[in-house]
Design a protein around this nucleic acid. Structure first.
Lengths: 334, 334
DNA sequence: CGCCGAATTGTTATCGATAACATGATACCG
DNA sequence: CGGTATCATGTTATCGATAACAATTCGGCG
């Protein structure tokens, strides 16, 4: 309705200086306990709402941690995000979220925006960035964490795992169970670096085992999910039977492939093995259960929180590199 | 490294006043075109980064829209969020996201925090709130939108659909296809109001059709997903065959139930019908496809964006109530 | 040439909270 | 009882951008 209530108004009402109110609301013990209680009471009565913007401005500490994700519409990233929110919320920090839609140029633009909010740290998903973006970030004296990857040339700290190692686990397992004709199902060559790295991991591992060339099945532009996996296999029809294993870029894609394969009467895993990535819920519940790789999305979030706490406490100075690893989870599709 | 670069520094470098720099960076046409270009150039060279905090403080406009979601780890809410982000991003607004974990008390706390950031609007998911929270919000002269619901007594604007109507569609359909012994599979009675409303909708619709009492199958505390649906049906074993339809609170739960039912050899839909809610991807890809209700998550987001634009442009004054509706999508599980 | 309106740039005050420093009140000691 | 340590509160200046108002420059025209 009228003008907003500020600390000055509260101060006037209690008959004290704004400074005392400020201290009282922060529970500063140098303020008399009775005064503190009275200030809180009056602030409540007046409907006073603290202004974080003014605080952020004055103290030059925004209370924000900026986070970029390729997409929130992905259970794994969402899980990491949840862990971050919960962990940082306890530390009084707010997350500022931006999604890149799997495009590095979008990431640059996004980070540019986020930086204007003066975040106290920057958490990026993935290790691929534009040069301009690297410059942007390194020009500031700002803690940076890259997660979900183990980049060669990191911007700062790293909490992730090796996508190519993870794919190697899958290929090793398939080879051990007698498969030789592999096809990789993923997004088209393009802006999604994570997909590209996984693809490269499969190709390298196959080569190491002396397998024939890995076929590429293009499920369309990133992000690809259940319906894209289902569609591409349905479109291929019986042609898919020339392979004895489909290595999918993610569990949802694998589930889509599985579903289409079953609809066309293929027996999984007898006729065709299918593997996923990410240990999504659907992999555990589907029928048959999908062989996948567990990447511990939540753990990544927790480790990032711990790292940030270390950084803010001054306990961390040198760049940290945490490999959370990944583990093969054998299901019933291989 | 050193002190941050401010407009004052840029101004000094160009030999002009900070005011001119401010105008130039905002592309104010009262500033000479050449000057504008030079200012931008110098700002870039100095590595100047605009300070939104200072701007927000001075103008008393934060550029934030606060949004609460029960959880980001839900493809439907994530979809709405994505539409909001994209739409509001174009308008130069940033989303401030908080998740309530399906608890109204948590919502109150969250909104309290979010309000300290001076958001220009508040977008809430759901229509159930604590009294304290209603007071909090109404004390401020702040546009409020409740979405994903059609509350009786809204706080402000509404963009949603009727959960009980949606469930009635499901029940009508089941009755029309000859089912009579229904069981509802959802979260335990508790803080999740959306689940409770859906359950009530099923009960009311069943009563209207003169069906026997609807059984309640408790899949555990909210949020419930695939694994909970799978677990509770697996635990019930053959007992589940006493019902001829499982009405699930969401598609993921339905998929879990479907999977367990299939594993124990039940034929769906011959022995047992299963329905979901939300038109998740899994409903379209699963085998058989799950009968569900489409709630157009993305459309909700778009409508909220349009409404917000109207509000900010001053085109909207009276509270708006948009019913985006919901539509039965018949699959192969019923 | 002198004057006027348009174009361009400058000055001042301000948003609300708080760090740093200063002051006043109170207790406690020998 | 004077003096000093402790507790409690107040004063002042400040963070960076910008609205509102003021001033200056410039071209053109009678």
């Amino acid at each position: 309705m009228g003008a907003r209530v500020t600390m000055r108004d509260v101060a006037q009402a209690v008959g004290m200086s704004p400074m005392t109110v400020s201290r009282a609301l922060r529970d500063d013990r140098t303020v008399n306990a009775k005064t503190r209680a009275r200030v809180r009471q009056v602030a409540d009565d007046l409907g006073y709402v603290y202004d974080s913007t003014a605080q952020a401005f004055r103290t030059q500490k925004s209370g924000f941690v900026a986070v970029t994700l390729p997409s929130v519409n992905n259970a794994n990233f969402a899980e990491t995000f949840r862990a971050l929110t919960n962990g940082l919320g306890e530390a009084g920090l707010q997350l500022l979220l931006g999604s890149t839609n799997y495009r590095v140029e979008r990431e640059e633009e996004l980070v540019r925006q986020l930086l204007t909010r003066n975040p106290e740290a920057l958490v990026l998903t993935g290790g691929h960035h534009t040069d301009e973006m690297r410059r942007l970030v390194q020009a500031r004296d700002l803690p940076v964490i890259e997660m979900w990857d183990l980049p060669e040339d990191p911007l700062g700290h790293v909490v992730g795992f090796s996508n190519s190692d993870a794919m190697a686990h899958i290929v090793d397992h398939l080879v051990a169970t007698g498969r030789r004709k592999l096809a990789f199902v993923g997004a088209s060559e393009g802006a999604d670096m994570r997909g590209a790295v996984r693809r490269a991991g499969v190709v390298a591992a196959a080569r190491a085992h002396g397998l024939p060339e890995v076929a590429m099945i293009d499920a369309g532009p990133a992000p690809v999910s259940m319906r894209h996996g289902a569609a591409v296999i349905e479109a291929m029809g019986r042609d898919v039977a020339q392979y004895d294993a489909l290595v999918c870029v993610s569990d949802p894609v694998a589930f889509g492939c599985l579903s289409s394969a079953q609809r066309m009467g293929l027996r999984v895993p007898d006729d065709l093995a299918i593997t996923g990535f990410g240990h999504f819920e659907v992999a555990k519940v589907s029928n048959p259960r999908i062989t996948t790789v567990n990447v511990q999305a939540e753990d990544i979030g927790r480790q990032v929180v711990a790292l940030l706490q270390g950084i803010f406490d001054g306990a961390v100075d040198d760049p940290v590199r945490v490999d959370v690893g990944s583990a093969l989870v054998v299901g019933e599709t291989s």
